[in-house]
Write a protein that binds this DNA or RNA. Structure first.
Length: 934
RNA sequence: GGGCAGUUAGCUCAGCGGUAGAGCACCGCCUUGACAUGGCGGUGGUCAGAGGUUCGAUCCCUCUACUGCCCACCA
């Protein structure tokens, strides 16, 4: 989905960037086995055939899941390739690979032997639909409208002080059948004297004590609470504290069992609730019912309401030693002392707060798909843990009684995912690990260098599930942190900021953005899984309105660039397709700039390709050594390598424009490098965008035109070379974000520069210091730009048709201005469509003219026949007003003694300079206005 | 109940102590030989509200109001 595409764009950009910088890079790709989700899918398939997994039996069922995994796994990698992921696919891993499974067994056994994994009968979150335990993290609390039932439990010895009994409040009346006590607060004056008495449990033939416990909130309900140890997490703790017996009254599929009174046996929990309430009312125990909003624990995977259930499960000890087990404490320390850094850093709080309040981790799941727990039981119920049965026997402290049978349960998927940072590198094997094709996929002896890795890129939603657990296991087993940086990417939402979800029909498929999709297909796809007709209709209506023509293909590059441009430190990004279209235009701009450059070099691209090839640009993966994966568009021939002449190659930038663009390139690259280290993809995309479009294309390319066709052969040759060099550099700088188009263009540009690499990915990432900064040239070009902009402004505002060549006069100014005007004469003529600029001679009568002011120079366009005098006066007055406002602001500041005394000298100085500049301009403009009789 | 974000141009977002920015949208003019997925020019903002710190606050602090997310056992 969009989140994956976004995430992979970030990862791929980082990988390509570092590879080009010559770093030893590994992008460890792979997938986990998604235990519950996957098993559920296959079970659903079976259900459609009218079968259950029990019909197949464990072995056949697991076989079938493997089969499904082969199919779906390839879909993921295919999509990653489309987005351009330059991963090392030969090293792709799966959590149920043999090697990774060996790591799982070793970790389990070591932790067990260290006393950090234990088996116990505990109250756990039980999913009665999937029939498995789940961890705390896999439970969501959702608010529901419910009721609060007030129930009277009569005193066993008859009324006390006229009171018939104790009134309790509950949201789950059916669980009263398992009550073991009532509890009040020890300091509650209303009830203190009743502690120790007994009440009769309605509907049951039992009496239960009234106890006192601090846990009770005096303010809530009646201040008296029923204690149902086996079916409520709070009550469980209270019951344990007071040694109150726990009665289990539900089966694993949440029906009343034989411990419940006969009347309710076999009833579903909600049916039983109704029956219990009805009976209570009948028998006069129900005091009242109030509407009540409450939190219901819901299974993330099945939406079933979770039932706390007392069962035998396996746990990882994360809390011994005061909540800081040998596993937890190092994981906290690593982040606190900066060995691991969250980006953006505010996620640090989330991480540490969770670890500070963590509970033991329930790792057993009553499923078949996953790593089977390496524990065996003998006929006496003794537990034997080992990497296999023989190992388990060998480590037995008591001889097994009879045959051993392996634990039926599997491990939480995240248990194996938690080992990813080192299990994928070959741990624990001393030998190279091979895949089923006999290829070496990992070798711990040599691959250790990738631990810790530089960065983990992931979503905040799995900081607890995955990130924290990788930190815990990796620190424990390797004494190293798994990664240095954790870049938490933003969540992708739709343009209105709503979560993308299939049930809202507002998801976008990245591939549909890349390839485009027709309206009917989009409608069909978005409404396919919507079952409610009204919702369907609404979604269809919205889509028809939002995408009347479907979605036009924007290509992988533009999509990637959009993701980069949106990747600020913000925690959500609202995906606006308009923005993607803007970046598609950028890709096109780049393409056309390249066309221009190549057109002016010895081997141009063929004409007639003014738009970037769309569908043809689709490529396969860009695996190392695989080349660009780009198809050439129709009609295009292989460019014949014709390197520049020696003179061209050897020449240094000669013109100001060249030295200026090279200076700008330096600044841009410096900025980009900085942004890569801080993961500010938005800024680096922006910097490159501005450089390519606003500087290289808008100014340098335009300035090159007169140079290329001018009389100065040396300048022409040098310009040609600089066009190529800067383009080639910009391509490399952009390549991590825009891999396909840059490769495509580069293949044509490289021969022009005599470059030998087979792929742009083999070239080094450009560094700022390879490009000289020339302040002087920059100042010259800024002057030129100001002059040209001034003229353009007049032309535009005075409605002088662009095609019309106009006369140009220069007045005032100093020696520098004269020198510059002389130097840029040809460029001004060419780009401003004017006659050669002429200086107004001393004493020469000045014609009525429109004027632009650049420093001390007045750039004059005579009005005769061109310009409306009134319009020019109005234009001048507007400009004067604007400058006066600026002057007023400056004077306000400088007139404030506090400012002058307290502000840093540089700031005051800057303000004075500004004021002087504004005043100069104001003077010139006023003079000009006077001349026009305004 | 705790915690974390966000509120800046019509829309999607940067900026974050010293002259308010980008893309898209909008308004002019222009099929000029790289590009109309374009060029040139332009319109548009008391930076959510109120206090405070400061010579100076969109930026720092406090509070308020909305919006969103995460965590938590109030039966």
């Amino acid at each position: 989905h969009m989140g994956h595409a976004f995430q992979q764009t970030i990862m791929d950009a980082l990988i390509r960037y570092h590879r080009m910088r010559g770093d030893n890079t590994l992008w460890q790709v792979g997938t986990d086995h998604a235990g519950i989700a996957t098993q559920k899918i296959v079970e659903n398939q079976l259900a459609a055939e009218g079968k259950s997994r029990h019909d197949l039996g464990r072995e056949a069922f697991v076989e079938r899941v493997w089969h499904w995994k082969e199919e779906s796994g390839s879909t993921i990698t295919r999509q990653m390739r489309r987005i351009g992921a330059a991963a090392d696919w030969s090293r792709e891993r799966f959590t149920m690979d043999e090697g990774l499974s060996a790591a799982v067994r070793k970790v389990f056994v070591e932790w067990y032997r260290a006393g950090l994994i234990y088996r116990g009968n505990r109250l756990v979150n039980w999913d009665p639909l999937l029939m498995t335990a789940v961890s705390d993290l896999e439970v969501n609390n959702v608010e529901r409208d419910g009721s609060m039932w007030y129930i009277c439990y009569p005193f066993s010895d008859g009324p006390v002080d006229g009171l018939r009994g104790m009134t309790i409040a509950t949201t789950r009346p059916e669980t009263m059948l398992a009550d073991g006590a009532l509890a009040v607060h020890p300091e509650d004056g209303r009830y203190r004297h009743l502690v120790g008495r007994y009440v009769d449990l309605p509907l049951c033939d039992r009496r239960i004590p009234i106890i006192a416990d601090e846990f009770v909130d005096r303010e809530f309900g009646s201040g008296c609470v029923k204690i149902t140890g086996a079916h409520d997490f709070n009550d469980y703790e209270v019951a344990k504290r007071h040694a109150i017996g726990m009665i289990i009254i539900m089966t694993l599929d949440a029906r009343m069992n034989d411990s419940a009174p006969a009347a309710y046996r076999g009833m579903d929990r909600y049916v039983a609730r109704k029956a219990v309430v009805a009976d209570l009312e009948h028998q006069g125990f129900l005091i009242k019912v109030e509407p009540h909003k409450y939190q219901v624990p819901v299974s993330q995977r099945s939406d079933a309401v979770i039932e706390p259930m007392l069962t035998d499960q396996w746990f990882v000890d994360l809390t011994s030693d005061n909540g800081r087990s040998a596993i937890t404490q190092p994981a906290l320390d690593a982040v606190r002392n900066g060995d691991i850094r969250f980006v953006p850093e505010n996620w640090t709080t989330t991480y540490t707060q969770w670890l500070d309040n963590i509970q033991d981790w329930c790792i057993s799941r009553q499923l078949w798909w996953g790593h089977r727990i390496p524990a065996w039981y003998d006929e006496a119920g003794n537990i034997f843990v080992g990497e296999d049965e023989a190992d388990a026997r060998a480590h037995a402290s008591v001889p097994p009684v009879g045959a051993l049978r392996q634990d039926e349960d599997v491990l939480d998927t995240w248990f194996s995912s938690a080992l990813w940072p080192f299990s994928t590198l070959g741990w624990p094997s001393d030998q190279p690990v091979e895949n089923e094709r006999g290829e070496i996929v990992a070798n711990w002896q040599t691959d250790k260098v990738f631990l810790p890795s530089s960065v983990l890129v992931t979503g905040f939603d799995i900081i607890f599930f995955w990130v924290a657990r990788m930190v815990m296991t990796t620190l424990y087993f390797t004494r190293q942190v798994p990664f240095r940086d954790v870049y938490i990417n933003a969540i992708v939402r739709d343009a209105e900021g709503r979560k993308m979800s299939k049930s809202k029909g507002n998801t976008l498929d990245p591939l549909d953005l890349i390839d485009g999709i027709t309206l009917p297909a989009l409608v069909e796809k978005s409404t396919r899984s919507l079952l409610i007709p009204q919702v369907r209709e609404k979604v269809e209506k919205r889509i028809r309105k939002e995408y009347p023509d479907g979605i036009a293909a924007i290509g992988t590059d533009a999509l990637r660039f959009t993701f980069a441009a949106l990747a600020s430190y913000s925690r959500t990004i609202n995906f606006d397709i308009k923005r993607a279209e803007g970046y598609k235009a950028f890709c096109n701009k780049l393409w056309n700039a390249a066309r221009f450059v190549l057109m002016n070099s010895s081997s141009p691209l063929p004409p007639g390709t003014a738009a970037i090839p769309g569908q043809e640009l689709r490529g396969g993966a860009q695996a190392p050594g695989e080349g660009s994966g780009l198809a050439r568009h129709p009609g295009e021939t292989e460019p014949s390598p014709q390197p520049l002449s020696r003179r061209e190659r050897g020449s240094l930038p000669t013109t100001e424009a060249e030295r200026w663009i090279v200076s700008r390139l330096h600044a841009t690259l410096a900025e980009v490098e900085q942004h890569f280290t801080t993961y500010r993809f938005d800024h680096l995309a922006q910097a490159l965008y501005e450089f390519v479009w606003n500087e290289y294309c808008d100014w340098f390319l335009e300035l090159s035109k007169p140079a290329l066709s001018g009389d100065d052969a040396e300048a022409a040759a040098s310009t040609r070379r600089t066009l190529l060099v800067v383009l080639e550099t910009a391509l490399r700088a952009l390549h991590p974000v825009i891999p396909f188009i840059t490769e495509e263009i580069w293949q044509s540009v490289a021969p022009q520069l005599g470059l030998e690499a087979a792929s742009i990915l083999e070239r080094a990432y450009p560094r700022a210091d390879e490009f000289a900064v020339d302040q002087t040239a920059s100042a010259e070009i800024e002057w030129f730009k100001a002059v040209l902009t001034g003229i353009r402004k007049i032309r535009s505002e005075m409605n002088i048709v662009p095609g019309k060549t106009i006369p140009l006069l220069l007045a005032d100014g100093d020696a520098d201005d004269r020198r510059r005007a002389e130097k840029f004469s040809a460029q001004i003529e060419f780009l401003a469509r004017c006659e050669a600029p002429r200086w107004l001679a001393a004493g020469e009568a000045e014609p009525a003219a429109a004027a632009a002011v650049v420093g001390n120079v007045r750039v004059l366009i005579p009005l005769a026949g061109l310009i409306d005098l009134d319009a020019e006066r109005a234009r001048l007055n507007k400009e004067i007003a604007r400058i006066q406002a600026e002057i007023k602001k400056c004077q306000g500041k400088l007139g404030n003694a506090n400012f002058v005394d307290h502000a840093p000298a540089v700031v005051v100085e800057q303000e004075r300079n500004r004021l002087a500049d504004w005043n100069t301009q104001l003077g010139v403009l006023r003079g000009q206005a006077e001349k026009l009789g305004a």
